[in-house]
């Protein structure tokens, strides 16, 4: 039995310890905002927060999350930070097919929480682990830049 906190609620599972956190989230908890892209840590579509740190859930066996705090895109939906990122991505045209977006939002939030006023280069570094095959990234960089300005003081 593995116990952990998921989006603020205490949860437990009997799934094998070598189950990927990504599969646990999507299949057992039906949190399908977290996506599987490459399955090997190169695309960032499965990004979540583990103890407030951005991590790839496809690379995490659930045996190692005992006692940890996990936050998925669903867990931040009601926050002011998410609202600002949501508006900024929309205004900047940062979303096309949308598959990479939950991971991008998590990476954006992680970056801004650590560095509320990032330069363009720092933004690119912050989302360097997230692949988007639609936008060419420029609109996403603009979105994060806008979110930094709009959310001044809340990050």
């Amino acid at each position: 039995m593995i116990k952990f906190t998921l989006n603020g609620k205490t949860e437990e599972t009997n799934a094998p310890a070598t189950t990927r956190l990504l599969d646990l989230l999507r299949d057992d908890f039906e949190l399908i905002g977290t996506k599987e892209g490459c399955g090997e840590g190169e695309c960032g579509a499965c990004s979540v927060f583990v103890n407030n740190l951005l991590q790839n859930s496809c690379l995490i066996p659930i045996g190692s999350i005992a006692g940890a705090e996990i936050q998925t895109i669903e867990g931040i939906l009601e926050t002011k930070k998410f609202k600002i990122l949501d508006e900024s991505y929309s205004d900047a045209g940062g979303v096309q097919c949308g598959y990479c977006i939950p991971g991008m939002i998590m990476a954006s939030a992680a970056l801004l929480s650590k560095n509320p006023h990032p330069s363009k280069a720092e933004i690119r570094e912050g989302i360097s682990g997230n692949l988007c095959r639609c936008t060419g990234y420029n609109m996403i960089v603009d979105a994060i830049n806008q979110a930094a300005k709009k959310g001044d003081g809340i990050w």
Partner: peptide, 19 residues
């Protein structure tokens, strides 16, 4: 297993299947 970032890729068994 420390971070697991290599082991998880090396022994990947596909969607929904524990390693």
């Amino acid at each position: 297993m420390a971070g697991g970032t290599d082991i998880m890729v090396l022994h990947k068994s596909g969607r929904g299947v524990p390693l």
